[in-house]
Write a protein that binds this DNA or RNA. Structure first.
Lengths: 226, 226
DNA sequence: CGATTGTCGATTGTCAACAATATTCTGTTG
DNA sequence: CAACAGAATATTGTTGACAATCGACAATCG
């Protein structure tokens, strides 16, 4: 296993994570990072050689990645990076919107002032980042906002699906939120979600959470058509 | 393995399916059939010996089963049959209800008289089965009804999730539909779904499809409490 | 010339052996 | 007798080798 931070000895001696986890993360990074193209076949042998492991862990990691829909395996032929059609991406947006709605509704239904405070901090931070034109940081904060909602909603399966679908849709590899205008609109939607959560309005939280993602889908379509 | 795509399977020679597929199906059958208890550890060695294969395919099959949430793997410790808490089961019902709503809505939005005819046949058949007190056949027809909707909805990812969640919830292993009264109620709900689909009423189809599953959740709770 | 068949190289599927890790047992000690 | 340390055992993690299969190209036949 190649080691990004040059400590190969330590990593080998005190390895606690199974190799398959390392390989899995590396493969996921390669796929989501665009180092391997959509539809491309993942050659077990060369991957194993690249990472300095045998084919076993590579195979298991590939099966694990199949779970998240990042790759599809064909018998006697190999695993291919999944290629997302526009219809696939739109369906993923819809599914994700449903999950997000449930997660927001669940958070709105539970007490916990600190949760709301954390969310408010994130939304305020995002406004600052927009003002400073720091789009990369905005994406990070945006991710943190949604992850935080998902983490505290108490719906583990829904959360894991939400996260997995998020990775899956990234296969489509199209940055929808570009331009400050989109960011402003996006964070305004965050505020509406937050307001519903703070008000304990379950149904509104569900609707706003879902609409936020459906708007993302709409922006995707506009980006493609315009 | 179904052959939906154009795989050349002309020869009737018995197909040599990859072993991992056989092992996977066998494990799934054992888990869903209750041959191994929830929370029990799956011993790679004894399973491999039982099935007459080596541990490799067993390991891969286990990882594949993790995809459907039927088992959970712990590093250096093995894979365990997933144990579902009541909260887990309820969450799965909610998720499945959402998927079902989307699938029904999608079918309602598309043309195709033969699809509706097939569904109507199934509903009529189920009424006959109720009249004949053939509960086992009813369960089969019920499954066919929902599978058929999922199959023709044109939402592949939603369908696969719906099916996987269906297997997952079976881990809770509690037959909710017992007694003819429940069957009558259940098929009445089927008719409402069908009516909305035939009318092309997308929103009603979504609501009825979702409610049908939420009612199943309600019946589960009533079974447990009463 | 086109289609079919045979062969070859590359790749995946499977296996059994070895290494690392977790669990159980056992004997000792306070 | 309880608690602990360490060995013994069982199980998972990993590996390299071998078998089965697939795709491509060349040879053969009509």
């Amino acid at each position: 296993m190649q080691n990004a931070n040059g400590t190969p000895e330590t990593a080998q001696r005190f390895r606690q994570r199974p190799l398959v986890q390392e390989v899995r993360d590396e493969l996921e990074r390669m796929i989501l990072g665009g180092e391997v193209e959509a539809g491309e076949r993942l050659n077990e042998i060369v991957l194993a050689r690249q990472m300095g492991v045998s084919r076993g862990p590579v195979r298991e990691a590939a099966r694990s990645l199949e779970r998240e829909g990042l790759v599809r395996a064909v018998a006697n032929q190999g695993v291919y990076v999944r290629k997302l059609s526009l219809e696939d991406a739109l369906e993923l947006y819809d599914l994700r919107a449903l999950m997000a709605g449930e997660l927001c509704a669940s958070v709105a239904a539970m007490p916990g002032a600190h949760i709301r405070a954390d969310l408010r901090d994130l939304v305020d931070t995002m406004d600052d980042l927009i003002a400073g034109d720091d789009q990369d940081s905005y994406f990070t904060a945006n991710l943190a906002f949604h992850d935080h909602i998902a983490a505290v909603a108490g719906l583990e399966r829904t959360r894991s699906l939400y996260v997995a679908l998020g990775k899956e849709v990234r296969l489509f590899r199209l940055r929808v939120l570009n331009g400050l205008a989109s960011l402003v609109v996006s964070n305004a939607e965050h505020r509406r979600i937050l307001a519903a959560i703070e008000a304990g309005d379950v149904e509104t939280a569900r609707t706003e959470g879902r609409n936020h993602h459906l708007n993302g889908k709409r922006r995707l379509l506009e980006t493609l058509n315009g």
